[in-house]
Design a protein around this nucleic acid. Sequence first.
RNA 1: GGCCUUAUCGUCUAACGGCUAGGACGGCGCCCUUUCACGGCGUAAAUCCGGGUUCGAUUCCCGGUAAGGCUACCA
Length: 472
Amino acid sequence: MSPRVRFAPSPTGFFSLGNARTALFNWLFAKHEGGKFLLRIEDTDKERSKKEYEESILEGLKWLGLDWDEKVERQSERIPIYEKYLKRLMDEGRAYFCFCSGEELESERQAQLSQGLQPKYGGRCRNISKEEAFKRAEKENHVIRFKMPSHTVSFSDLIRGKVSFDLDLIGDIIIAKGFDSPLYNFAVVVDDEEMKITHVIRGEDHISNTPKQIAIQEALGFSMPIYAHLPLILGPDRKKLSKRYMDASLRDFKDRGYLPEAFFNFMLLLGWHPSVDKEVVSAEEAINDFSFKKVQKGGAVFNQEKLEWLNAYYLRNLPVERLAEELSGFVPGEWLEDEDKFKKIVQIERERLRHLTDFRDTADFFFVLKEYPADLLIWKGSSKSVMVDNLSFLSNVIRGIPNHELWSRENIDKYIMSVADQKGRGEVLWPLRVALSGKEASPGPSDILYVLGKEESLKRVEKALKRLASEN
RNA sequence: GGCCUUAUCGUCUAACGGCUAGGACGGCGCCCUUUCACGGCGUAAAUCCGGGUUCGAUUCCCGGUAAGGCUACCA
């Protein structure tokens, strides 16, 4: 039977790094096995679930290229299904109404805690007769509790091996606030069964929910899926990513200029390792190579530096067209008027970028030459008069470079370098480069010349000459 | 407190029970070089502690320790 896995986020916050990683591993496993990857929105918490969060999740998955099979399921649209099973548990005496107040429960909890016991519901309402319970339920506040058995359950985790829990320590958990409002641990079990989920792949923070879910499965006569609990992604403090730290929306990473390819690759390496030792792994390779055997057990600290490095790597290795397209969202509209020019700039500047957002400030001089101090034109240890001589000479050389098809990067470089080798590289290349870019750091002069064209380049050289002259 | 999980360079990680514990990011140094960047080369840096099993433990077992997760009418 081909596997069916699901990514089941709750829309109570923006799509986060942790969410994304869980989705990624589900997706990889499904693709690797030729199975289905389903998306289920767990919006049973009516107060905290918001439409914009759901949109954020969908948007994030699309950005990363994690496409799902079948339609988006929402728990809020499946209420009758849960009701059916809830009634069945009630009928069979495996669940019951509980009328205890919050204060009662809290004081019980505190008492147990002070005795060093694991807090657990004592079962006060467990023995109220069914008739009485239904009668009281008509006017009293109540919830539905599951009668937790007291045996030991265990499951074989694909990542961790055998894990066992003593159900006796757990107590009767609340599985619904009413027939029309199921709670997480119950809804998950019902959905996974109804949706024929074969593998539950989720974060390690769910390990302790697993025995509760298994107990409910047993009560309902469902089969147990295979579990795989992924290690958590940690902040620099080695704690689960906090809401305010990296747990920000994936959208923020996009806005800060990260490429989806880089981000995908980065998450992949957080807890998983390819069978051959390498850092750059494409989605396709990851699918082919994926295995839970290579998934790490311990939590992984989010390493910003490595993400930066991967992003820079993809920035300089993606096809130019693709990169230009990504970059186009981060620059003023005028830059895109001459598509050919834009692509040339992208090609030249790409190796200097770490984020898409860097492009705007590094490439601006191709469009507008900013003011710069005349001193910047003077190569270290050299003099103004030499700079003036060299720039004047260069001006003539540039004028003499043939236009059209001979105005090529290679040909320009030939002309410039012959001057540079004659008169000294620093004395020639530095002032030319500054004249053309107005910057302390930039690509080489031949590259800039190539993009700017003869006319604009000559104008900038003249400007530099004037600037040097007016300094006296 | 209780339950569960985990433990290799600062970080991400590799290593059928068997070489000087390997790679990557970051750091440092050198080279390339008009600048920046790219690239190349080199270098420092780790098996949590204590027992056991074994000819031999990073690896298997036990005990500590530490870290993390959960302990909701959230998911």
